[in-house]
């Protein structure tokens, strides 16, 4: 099913209010914004009563080998439309402001992006790994992730199993 995205006029209005917003003229226009203006833009998208993008549908990140894009899909029931916001980050030191102050429900998803992609969210209440164990090295969803499987845990009473086998 084809989803509706924001029209050109609506996008132009957003572009008028923020300096760093740039729009890719493709079929599905994402809004690119700089990390500095990111939080004000999200606040405006959520609280503006003609837009009211109150539902954060999807939060993820894509590794493009030179940059890492963090992607937000917001949905507005009022307009019945999506808006796609993307923030480009530097791959060696990816860091953007956390959106949890605007959408409290983004907490787990941001932790997941940090865990699997290595993007740090400043101002997040609890920035820890969520899926991989503590002490895991690397971020699996990056394209250059290489990994050697560790030895599986040893049963501390292995001796007893062997003794039993000697019977």
């Amino acid at each position: 099913m084809k989803q509706r995205y924001l029209t050109a006029e609506e996008l132009a209005r957003i572009k008028g209010e923020f300096y760093t917003v740039s729009i890719d003229e493709e079929e599905r226009p994402p809004i690119y914004v700089s990390p500095e203006e990111f939080l004000p833009l999200m606040k405006m998208l959520k609280n503006d009563h003609t837009l009211s993008f109150t539902h954060l549908s999807c939060l993820t990140a894509v590794d493009w080998k030179d940059t890492i894009d963090v992607v937000y899909y917001l949905f507005s029931e009022l307009l019945g439309a999506y808006v796609v916001v993307k923030v480009k980050t530097i791959r060696n030191h990816p860091e953007i402001p956390s959106v949890t102050s605007v959408f409290p429900g983004a907490e787990f998803e941001e932790r997941e992006v940090y865990d699997l992609m290595g993007v740090r969210f400043t101002g997040h209440p609890d920035m820890r790994r969520i899926l991989m164990p503590e002490g895991f090295k690397g971020h699996p969803l990056r394209k250059d992730f290489t990994y050697k499987k560790p030895a599986p845990p040893k049963a501390t009473r292995v001796g007893e199993i062997e003794k039993e086998a000697d019977l």
């Binding site: 062997e162 039993e164 086998a165």
Partner: peptide, 9 residues
């Protein structure tokens, strides 16, 4: 069982 566990060990 004992035989197989010995092999496993």
């Amino acid at each position: 069982v004992a035989e197989e566990r010995a092999k496993w060990a």
